[in-house]
Design a protein around this nucleic acid. Structure first.
Length: 423
RNA sequence: GGAGGGGUGCCAGAGUGGUAAUGGAGCAGAUUGCUAAUCUGUCAACGGGCAACCGUUGCCGGGGUUCGAAUCCCCGUCCCUCCGCCA
């Protein structure tokens, strides 16, 4: 959400910047500015009346003490009349305020100047590609077949228990999951992130805070009876730790990490592209979240990218980094790097991490500020990234490291799995 | 799930209808012969103004009663205590 003062003072800049998203916000912006002007006029009007009412109330108090009953009843009438008219203005003001808020939530974040132009994922800019050196057998098979062959992931069983998109991991498959989670968490902790265990169900305030509500309402599982949402990512609870918080500048940066399952409805996704582990309703992910001062945020983003690179290198997986174009950029993000690993058996790239900077877009919604050394309050810049999402990493490990003898576990992971081959 | 008690500023904590005491922390200024003390101010949000400043709102959230609400009433929410249930 953009600050109202910012919108007021940067009309043309915002309209121009959103063109990168192929989104015309001119109408919305002008509407907001119009409503905001009206709101301020009404507010002044209201405040003047309330000031008068306050004076009268004080007078009445004094008159009671003096015992001047006549004057009291006259003033009471005047005050009552004022009250009726302030109530009307008050309601109007509330209504305008809600309208402005609703309009503001419709404006996506302003794309960073480095975001490339483009319409869709086809226009994303590849900024890094590791050497691809995969030596898989001629009869290489996709992970859903490997999973069956080695009896490590059971998709049918998951369908029976819950439905499609809810796999059951078993035997070495379950242990591999656990190993990856611990490996990722440890890597993050070594890099200075503090580990949290957070709720997997969140309220609507939290959903609004990170920008998932109202924009992505239909993509989250909603428990109606208690009005709670199953988290689509740990970003939601981890970031909302800092909702309605005033930090000191010396508190920053704040770096947190957490493992959670993630739940996504993914309505309407079927077919080969979503086969096996490629797209699920429930999956595991380790997330990193950073809070930074505006001046240091961009460097922090680069640091997060380097961090994810290191993890992928340790897993010996071939990967590339894409800078998302305006058309593919998420609603709340200002700049996003996607990490994709190459699956030799599927002969395609699989997204396994997304690292983003939001500037103050989330902190405006979260009411998250920090006090500078000079005592000025400013909104914090937020960033987050996956480090990492499990299912496609598992798919990549299975498919790229398959041999005729079995699936070879990367060295870095063996202390966590306790085995070096799945056979 | 049932019963009762509570929620006041950054923190502690008074305040049962007349418009938020008092401590402490932090910050700013002043001052003093220097590990610090003392004094003053500031310490929530919003609107107006170049500014000093002025005004409004703010006592968990939302309604209500009243000329006037932290205070009284209703709904919600969270915390604490007890009972019930329970991994």
């Amino acid at each position: 959400m953009l600050a109202i003062q910012f919108i007021r003072n940067n009309r043309d800049l915002i309209i121009e910047a959103q063109k990168k998203r192929n989104f015309n916000v001119e109408k919305i912006i002008d509407n907001i500015i119009k409503l905001d002007t009206l709101k301020r006029v009404k507010q002044t009007e209201l405040e003047n009346k309330l000031a008068k009412a306050n004076i009268i109330a004080k007078e009445i108090g004094a008159l009671y003490k003096a015992g001047d009953e006549k004057k009291v009843s006259y003033l009471k009438k005047e005050s009552s009349a004022l009250k009726t008219s302030t109530k009307i203005i008050q309601d109007k003001l509330t209504k305008i305020g809600n309208e402005i808020l609703e309009l503001r939530t419709k404006i996506p974040n302003i794309p960073n100047e480095n975001v490339p132009h483009g319409e869709s994922e086809k226009d994303n800019e590849e900024i890094f590609k590791s050497d691809i050196f995969i030596n898989i057998p001629k009869n290489a098979i996709p992970h859903w077949e490997l999973a069956k062959k080695y009896d490590i992931i059971d998709f049918d069983l998951g369908s029976k228990i819950s439905g499609s998109g809810f796999p059951v991991y078993k035997n070495k498959g379950a242990r591999l999951q656990r190993a990856l989670i611990n490996f990722f968490l440890d890597q993050n902790i070594y890099a200075g992130y503090n580990e949290y265990q957070v709720p997997h169900l969140v309220n609507s305030e939290s959903g609004f805070g990170t920008g998932n509500l109202p924009d992505k309402e239909g993509q989250m599982y909603h428990v109606r009876e208690d009005d709670l949402y199953l988290i689509p990512t740990a970003e939601v609870p981890l970031t909302n730790i800092y909702r309605n918080v005033l930090l000191k500048e010396s508190d920053l940066p704040i770096c947190v990490t957490g493992y959670t399952p993630c739940f996504r409805r993914e309505a309407g996704s079927y077919g080969a592209q979503v086969r096996g582990l490629n797209r699920l309703h429930q999956f595991d992910k380790v997330e990193i979240v950073r809070l930074e001062t505006p001046g240091k945020a961009i460097n922090a983003l680069e640091g997060m990218v380097e961090h994810v690179k290191k993890i992928l290198s340790a897993l010996e997986l071939p990967y590339r980094i894409l800078k998302l174009c305006g058309g593919d950029l998420g609603f709340t993000s200002s700049l996003t790097y996607d990490f994709e690993i190459f699956s030799a058996a599927q002969e395609r790239w699989l997204e396994i991490s997304s690292v983003s900077i939001f500037n103050d877009f989330q902190s405006q919604r979260l009411n998250l500020k920090y006090k500078t050394k000079q005592g000025v309050k400013q909104h914090v810049y937020t960033l987050n990234g996956s480090a990492l999402a499990l299912p496609r990493v598992v798919a990549g490990l299975l498919e790229n490291f398959q041999t005729n003898e079995g699936i070879i576990i990367p060295k870095a992971l063996i202390p966590y799995t306790g085995f070096d081959i799945i056979s």
